[in-house]
Amino acid sequence: MEILDKLVNVALIAATLRTTAPILLVALGGSFTTKAGIFNIGLEGQMLAGAFFAVLGSIWTGSAFAGVACGVAAALVFALVFAVLVVSFRANEVVVGLALNILAGGMTISLMKAIFGTRGSIVGQGIVGLPKVQLPGARAVLGSWAPLISGFTPIVYVAFIAVPLLVLFYNRTRLGLYIRVVGEKPEAAEALGISITRVRYTASLLCGLLAGLAGAHLSLGYITMFTENMSSGRGFMAVAILIFSNGDPLKVLAGCLLFGFADAFSLRLQTFGYPSYLVLTVPYVVALTALFALSYRARPKIIKETLALMQKLLSADRNTEPGGKHPS
């Protein structure tokens, strides 16, 4: 029990919220494209570009918020390129997404080399991190539970507030409704004179906005540094969560919290001296197991049909010898 107490406490939950924030933001961004019927595998690249240019911007301007703006702008450029290729030129979305991911990875490395003359990471150099928001009165009201709501960087709050806002967006605004219609039944949208192209561009850019914020949070949030490939698969994990949640904000939140918790938990385990390479696999194992369990439950029909087909094939082999005979 003592060990459990040490493992699970307020600090762990606060850490969960912190680690959830970037993946939640990028997944919510992807929710726009998912709902609009675009399979956006380029989230990883947008996030990475956001992280890099946020650092760059904060060094140039000396302001964390200007850095965030730079990061968002970079991610928007990536999102725009994605939209131009996928929506206007109808290129394959997986190919374009992967290409942009590789571009982001390579571009950040070579720019790092060109500007800072280093490889690996940018530390110090005058990077300004985001301030932490201390909610006044939080300690007075919640006592030792205060870290649950206070002391995060602004982007963490943005991430969690975005969830109910997106629920409202999809259910009560015209754009949200049109995004859903375009994704679900494009011919209905077309028949009603809704421009599919315009809606998909808008969804792509909204996605870039949130992915850029997520990237900026990575590099200016709790650690103020940029390292090569620092998004480390979060964009892909977001894609996985999107597939299983179908882009519904609440389900996205649930999936991201699970992943964030596993991430925070693994960090905690590291302090107990377990081998770090094993511990680092924990979030991925947890997330994959959960997603598999979900998909297994959500798709019994496919499994049932497969079983039925196999049964039919087996019994057909036995019962219908004459019909199986091929004249030659």
Binding site: R174, L177, R180, V181, E184, K185, A188
Partner: peptide, 19 residues
């Protein structure tokens, strides 16, 4: 040309929503 996940009323007013 109806959208399955939307309600009947949403489908009826799609494209000319009352706001």
């Amino acid at each position: 040309k109806l959208v399955p996940s939307l309600s009947v009323a949403d489908n009826v007013f799609l494209g000319m929503e009352i706001r």
